[in-house]
């Protein structure tokens, strides 16, 4: 009787066995050595430190193309960017470079990605699929309504306004910091009212649930909750998105870093791209620590630096380098 050979799915680390001469694009010729190294790094965690004007977008575009040439299914690639426009632009450029498959990858912002997933699984976390997204001013209006309803507008002691409350709640979520710590740091005069501030928050959370509303933070928070509480969903998504890329990683917040961790838990195939020197959104909760601590969070991570600039003249770069080097301006 004939012997049996059972076909197995190829392990993903098999991909790199494809020889460069069989690729349609000559990656080595079209990229500088650092970019080439980044583009052709496939499995495992990678941190690409991309200085200003060093061809970061180009690198991402070529890597999308490279992965697809290796045989990765477009739908298995997830590209998270700062704006949706950026994602579409990269996908469009990759499609021009290679072919239309590059436009079939999953691309968007953390918030739009969360939105898509949550519309599908809303029921699991007690929402209807047609939930409304509140922008910041809407959210502040709701908080104000609750503030008035709970009679905090007529208390003898000054109570934080809707803007301050929204800011507190939002940063508490995005930086994974307790309200108490934030109060101590930024609003010490409201520390005594911590309990009341918590009460308004609890009412706000309940109100949103009751009326099928999510604010921006809820999108990320609810996705985190969904992934943590429902292992089957987490596993399904991690299996689906086998190669995850995150652009502008220096501007991500704690919750976004956690989401990346949850999504990659099965394979750790994650490439984050960014420039720690351009982290400028901490007022929105982003933290430079994500990019600085990435190698510790992902043992075995390879760090690749892009330093050749294609934008500015050398005198401008000299000044920029000098500005970054100077550290003798400590706080008073």
């Amino acid at each position: 009787m004939a012997k049996k050979f059972t076909l197995q799915p190829l392990p993903t680390d098999h991909l790199h066995l494809i020889q460069p001469q069989h690729l349609k694009i000559n990656y080595r010729q079209e990229l500088n050595p650092a970019q080439y190294e980044a583009v052709t790094s496939v499995n495992g965690p990678h941190l690409i430190i991309a200085g200003a004007g060093t061809g970061k977008t180009r690198t991402i575009v070529y890597r999308v193309s490279y992965l697809i040439e290796l045989g990765v299914k477009p739908s298995a690639i997830l590209l998270l960017t700062f704006t949706r426009k950026a994602a579409f632009e990269m996908m469009r450029r990759a499609a021009v470079l290679l072919d239309g498959r590059c436009e079939q990858i999953a691309g968007g912002t953390f918030h739009s990605f969360a939105n898509n997933i949550l519309r599908k699984y809303a029921g699991l976390i007690g929402y209807d699929a047609n939930f409304t997204i509140l922008d910041q001013t809407d959210a502040e209006d709701v908080i104000n309504l609750i503030r008035t309803r709970l009679k905090f507008d007529t208390k003898e002691k000054r109570f934080p306004r809707k803007e301050a409350l929204y800011d507190l709640y939002s940063r508490s979520i995005n930086t994974l910091t307790t309200l108490k710590d934030l109060l101590a740091l930024d609003y010490p005069n409201y520390l005594e009212q911590e309990a009341d501030i918590h009460a308004v928050h609890a009412a706000y959370v309940q109100y949103k649930r009751q009326h099928n509303l999510m604010d921006y933070d809820d999108l990320l928070l609810n996705l985190t909750v969904l992934l943590k509480q429902h292992e089957a969903v987490r596993a399904a998504l991690s299996d689906k998105y086998k190669y995850i890329m995150v652009d502008e990683y220096q501007d991500t917040n704690r919750m976004q870093a956690e989401l990346v961790k949850l999504l990659t838990f099965k394979h750790q195939n994650v490439m984050v791209v960014g420039d720690d020197a351009q982290c400028i959104y901490s007022f929105r909760g982003s933290t430079i620590r994500n990019i600085l601590e990435f190698p510790q969070e992902y043992p075995g991570c390879r760090v690749i630096k892009l330093e050749e600039n294609y934008r500015s003249t050398q005198p401008i770069l000299n000044l920029a380098n000098e500005i970054l080097k100077r550290t003798s301006f400590n706080a008073k």
Partner: peptide, 14 residues
């Protein structure tokens, strides 16, 4: 911070 030094091969400039 990650140490890096931006450079260009383009000559000249004001």
């Amino acid at each position: 911070m990650y140490y890096k030094e931006l450079y260009t091969t383009r000559p000249g400039g004001q």
